[in-house]
Design a protein around this nucleic acid. Structure first.
Lengths: 182, 182
DNA sequence: TTCGTATGGTACGAAACGGACTATGTCAAC
DNA sequence: GTTGACATAGTCCGTTTCGTACCATACGAA
């Protein structure tokens, strides 16, 4: 059996380990739904990877797999002791980089010398709307969490999301209100 | 000659058109340096693409190419009339999505139930440091721009960067000061 | 003439993407 | 108990991106 150290794990690998760690025994489909509600906001990737990746991790001894006996015979994965150790090792090593972002609207803003002021205002207003929608979504997650007993640490990321949305709303509102001259 | 409309252009394609539009005639290497100083902050991608992409765009008639006669015989690209039109069409269509981000530290925060409080504080302090460094870089760009006569629109994105850095600094400082219980 | 270094460019296997497509179970109605 | 509709669950595969190690060229200094 290849050891965990022999192969470089990607962030997505740790994401899978982490989610299974938090949720307990999970099928790929469980992960797919959990991802779309949670981590996809700060680590997006295609769901098709959630079908291959667990088997790779199982091959490395980080997950154990057993198949459901009835129904769809889905594959159910659980963290092994080594898997938990790998996960704990990873969370203890702070990354030496900040987030990476891709923002088409800012790209257009950077090239806004090729558009009219009206177009720039339209862009800004539209971004404002989109960020407000997302902010509302985050706020409803946060307030729903207040009622149920969701773990505080797991919720912390939502508060970062809220701050970021507010920063973006302020910025784009300012652009709309007072568009920079070319 | 295939028309521009026949092929779907990626954001990276528009980025190349846009940079050449702003800078005028450019070689791939010029673009590589310009990218690393500017747009890579909000649209990162490997520099190797800057060698293939211009030829693709030239094939579509959006760029014109001529080779330097002496020295390295580098390829020099200029925006054609069609290229400028494609760029202008693109900047006028506001995206219907907000930025996409990938943040390893937030991933670790989300899984922070697997770490001690000390480790969480260490993570937060480290992020705070990194964000402050980046903030300083953005501020020096902004203040350098105040002196030289850099276009206001081109600079606007830096101010968003500054707001984002501040939001992140505030968040991580708060985590460090008052780490959430598990 | 060579050497060192910054400049400039290439190549290519490995991952990631993404979205269309297929299959499976469940439950309600007949 | 058979049908059909719908939500669930999973697969497939061609296309793009990635990333980074490596190669090549110019040019000034010694």
């Amino acid at each position: 059996m290849p050891t965990a150290a022999a192969v470089r794990l990607s962030p997505t690998s740790y994401l899978v380990l982490g989610l299974i760690g938090l949720r307990g025994a999970s099928t790929p489909y469980d992960l797919k739904r959990a991802v779309s509600r949670t981590v996809s906001y700060f680590w997006p990737f295609p769901h098709s990877q959630l079908y291959g990746e667990p088997d790779r991790l199982a091959g490395m001894g980080l997950l154990s797999r057993k198949d459901e006996s009835g129904g769809r015979h889905r594959k159910v994965y659980t963290l092994t002791k080594e898997g938990r150790r790998a996960l704990q090792g990873w969370v203890k090593s702070p990354p030496d980089e900040i987030f990476e972002m891709r923002d088409i609207a800012v790209l257009q803003l950077f090239f806004s010398e090729f558009m009219s002021e009206d177009d720039l205002v339209a862009l800004a207003l539209n971004q404002g709307r989109l960020y407000r929608e997302r902010l509302a979504a985050y706020q409803s997650i946060a307030s729903a969490a207040g009622e149920t007993r969701i773990k505080r640490r797991r919720m912390a990321s939502v508060h970062l999301g809220i701050r970021m949305m507010n920063a973006c709303i302020d910025f784009w509102d300012e652009v709309a209100k007072n568009p920079p001259e070319p």
